[in-house]
Design a binder for these strands. Structure first.
Length: 498
RNA sequence: GCCCCCAUCGUCUAGAGGCCUAGGACGCCACCCUUUCAAGGUGGAGAUCAGGGGUUCGAAUCCCCUUGGGGGCACCA
C-alpha cells in the first residue's frame, strides 16, 4: 500500500507547537514507511488567513527540517507534486463539482435558514438541556418552497444529509471507536451561502483527490471523524486509516493555547532554541522509543518512529525539559555551526546596547569562534551568548560598587586588591598574557595578603566584565585583551577610591 | 446538556498477566569537581500504578463501575 500522508494547516496564525508536532509525526511516518508527505494549505477561512501566516508556517516547517514531497513552494518558489493545487482556495472548482454531485444524488440539499434562525434553535435546545442539532427545517423543501426563498433573496448554504447509523473507526493509536451519527448535530453544512466550502467537506474532497492513505492529526478531530467517514462514503471513496494524536496541554492540562503558553515556533526560535532540540522534544511528546535513549536526531527518529508507540493520553508541555534538550543539542553542534547560529544573538545584544547609547563594536564570526569553547557548556539557549559575552565588545563596563566588592571585603580592600592585581598582571606582561600564566601569580598575591583566592578572582571578574557569572576568569581576561584588562581594573580601583 | 477520548513519581515516560521491592529522563535536594556560572559525576527524596469491584494460582497490565480530567458538538479550522 502506498503511504501518502499530509499536514494541512490553516494560515490563520503562526505555526504553533501542536501543528509542528502533528507535521512531524506525519513526516516521520512517511519517511519510515517510504511514503509521501504532503503539505496542504487550508485557507478557505478568507477572513482570518493571511500571506504572512502562510510564510510563517512554511518557513518554520522548513527550518525544523520537516520538508514536504508535495505542496506549495517556499518563498515564492513553484510548488511540487502532481496532485495539486495545494491551496484550497485554488481548488474551489473541485469542491463545487463534489457539491453538485451530492446535490444531484440528494445526499445534500440547499438550506435557507438564516444565522438568526439557527442560533434561536440552538438557544431553545440548550435551554431545554437537549443536544444541539440542526432541526431539519430545510431538509425536505419542495421546489416551490425553494423558489420562494430564492425570490426573497436568500442565498442557500448546502447541507449534507446525516442518517442514523453507528460509525466504527479503527484508530491506529486508540483502537476501535464507535460513534452514533445521531450525536453529530444533524445535517452538516458543507458550503456557505457564498458557495465556499467548509472544513469538514474540503478536507475530505482533498484527501480523496490527493489519495491520502493515513490521516494523522490531533485528538480534537476524533469526535468529528464520523462526519468525514460519511462524506468519504457519499463521494464513493475508500476511507483512509486514522491516527489521532494526544493533545499537547497547558500546565493546567487544558488544550495548549496561546493564552496560557508560548505556542509559536517562531518565538522559541527567536529565543535561541535549536531546531534539533525542538524536533527531538516534539517527538517525545506523545511518543517514546521504548528504550532509555532520548536524544534523537530527525534521521534517527525517522528510523525508529512507530504509530503503535504513540501515547493516547495528553501531554503537558514542559519548557524545562525542552531547555535541557536544547543544551544537549547545543553541546553536540559542530563549532562552526554554533558560531553561525549564535552570532546573530550576540550581535543583537550588542546592537541593543548601542541603541541604548553604549559604545560598542559589533562582533564578527571571527570574534566569536575562539570564544565558543568557553560558552558552549554554559548556554541553555543561543540567546544566552549575549549576557555571556557582551562585555567583551562594549567599550567599558561600570559595575556598581556594591557588586564590585566581595561580600567579605570592604571597599578599601577591594580597591587595594584590584590595584595590586593590576600590577601583577602588568608584570606578567603582554607577551605572556595567557590563562596559564595568570593564575599562579594571582593566587600568590591572594596568599600574601591572606585573601581567599575566590574573593580576589570575583573582584577581578566584576571589574573586568561587570558580571558575577562569566566563563572561566583567566580565559575571559585573555579574550578581553591585555590592555583592556589593565584599563578596566585600573578604572574600577579608581572608582573605589574616589 | 449530549457524544467521544483519557487515567503509572510535580512533568515526559518504560511497562503488552509472573522479570515490578514499578525502571529511565526533566525538575528538586545533597555530595564530588570547582575562581563565579555552567557542564559533568555520584547519591537521595519523589508513584499504596485515580478509587472500588471482578477475572486469574497470580494484575500497573484484562473486564465492569465510580470518580477525575480533557476534547468535540458553528455558514472556524
Amino acid at each position: 500500500m502506498t503511504v501518502r500522508v499530509r499536514f494541512a494547516p490553516s494560515p490563520t496564525g503562526p505555526l504553533h507547537i501542536g501543528g509542528a508536532r502533528t507535521a512531524l509525526f506525519n513526516y516521520l511516518f512517511a519517511r519510515r514507511e517510504g511514503g509521501t508527505f504532503i503539505l496542504r494549505l487550508e485557507d478557505t477561512d478568507v477572513a482570518r488567513s493571511t500571506i504572512e501566516y502562510e510564510h510563517d508556517v512554511l518557513e518554520n516547517l522548513h527550518w525544523l527540517g520537516i520538508d514536504w514531497d508535495e505542496g506549495p513552494g517556499l518563498a515564492g518558489q513553484p510548488g511540487r507534486g502532481s496532485f495539486g493545487p495545494y491551496r484550497q482556495m485554488e481548488r474551489l472548482d473541485r469542491y463545487n463539482a463534489a457539491i453538485e454531485r451530492l446535490m444531484s444524488e440528494d445526499k445534500a440539499y440547499p438550506c435557507y435558514c438564516t444565522p438568526d434562525e439557527l442560533s434561536a434553535d440552538r438557544e431553545v435546545q440548550q435551554a431545554a438541556n437537549q443536544p444541539v442539532r440542526y432541526v431539519g427545517r430545510c431538509a425536505s423543501l419542495s421546489a416551490d418552497d425553494r423558489r420562494a426563498h430564492e425570490s426573497a433573496g436568500r442565498r442557500p448554504a448546502v447541507r449534507f444529509r446525516i442518517g442514523q447509523e453507528t460509525i466504527v473507526i479503527d484508530d491506529l493509536v486508540r483502537g476501535r471507536v464507535e460513534i452514533d451519527t445521531s450525536a453529530l448535530g444533524g445535517d452538516l453544512v458543507i458550503a456557505r451561502s457564498d458557495g465556499s466550502p467548509l472544513y469538514h467537506f474540503s478536507v475530505v474532497v482533498d484527501d480523496i483527490d490527493m489519495r491520502i492513505s493515513h490521516v494523522i492529526r490531533g485528538e480534537e478531530h476524533l469526535s468529528n471523524t464520523p462526519k468525514h467517514v460519511l462524506l468519504f462514503g457519499a463521494l464513493g471513496a475508500d476511507v483512509p486509516a486514522f491516527a489521532h494524536l494526544p493533545l499537547i496541554l497547558n500546565p493546567d492540562r487544558t488544550k495548549m493555547s496561546k493564552r496560557k503558553s508560548q505556542t509559536a515556533v517562531t518565538d522559541y526560535r527567536a529565543q535561541g532554541f535549536v531546531h534539533e532540540a525542538l524536533v527531538n522534544y516534539f517527538a517525545l511528546l506523545g511518543w517514546s522509543s521504548g528504550t532509555e535513549e532520548e536524544i534523537f536526531s530527525l534521521d534517527e527518529l525517522a528510523e525508529r518512529f512507530d504509530l503503535s508507540r504513540v501515547q493516547s493520553a495528553g501531554a503537558v508541555f514542559d519548557r524545562e525539559r525542552l531547555e535541557w534538550l536544547n543544551g544537549q543539542w547545543i553541546r553536540r553542534l559542530p563549532e562552526e555551526e554554533l558560531v553561525d547560529r549564535a552570532l546573530p544573538f550576540l550581535q543583537a545584544e550588542i546592537e541593543s546596547a548601542r541603541a541604548a547609547g553604549v559604545h560598542a563594536r559589533i562582533p564578527t564570526a571571527d570574534d566569536l569562534r575562539p570564544l565558543i569553547p568557553m560558552v558552549r557548556e554554559r548556554i541553555p539557549t543561543l540567546d544566552a551568548v549575549g549576557s555571556m559575552l557582551d562585555y567583551l565588545f562594549l567599550d567599558d563596563v561600570r559595575p556598581d560598587l556594591q557588586l564590585l566588592t566581595p561580600k567579605r571585603w570592604d571597599e578599601a580592600t577591594t580597591c587595594q586588591a584590584l590595584s595590586e592585581a593590576r600590577e601583577v598582571i602588568a608584570q606578567v606582561g603582554e607577551v605572556s598574557f595567557e590563562a596559564d600564566e595568570l593564575e599562579g601569580p594571582l593566587r600568590l598575591l591572594a596568599e600574601r595578603h591572606g585573601w581567599k583566592a575566590g574573593d580576589l578572582f570575583m573582584a577581578i571578574r566584576v571589574a573586568a566584565t561587570g558580571r558575577t557569572a562569566t566563563p572561566p576568569l583567566f580565559d575571559t581576561l585573555v579574550a578581553l585583551g591585555y590592555q583592556r584588562t589593565l584599563d578596566r581594573l585600573g578604572r574600577a580601583a579608581a572608582r573605589l577610591t574616589g
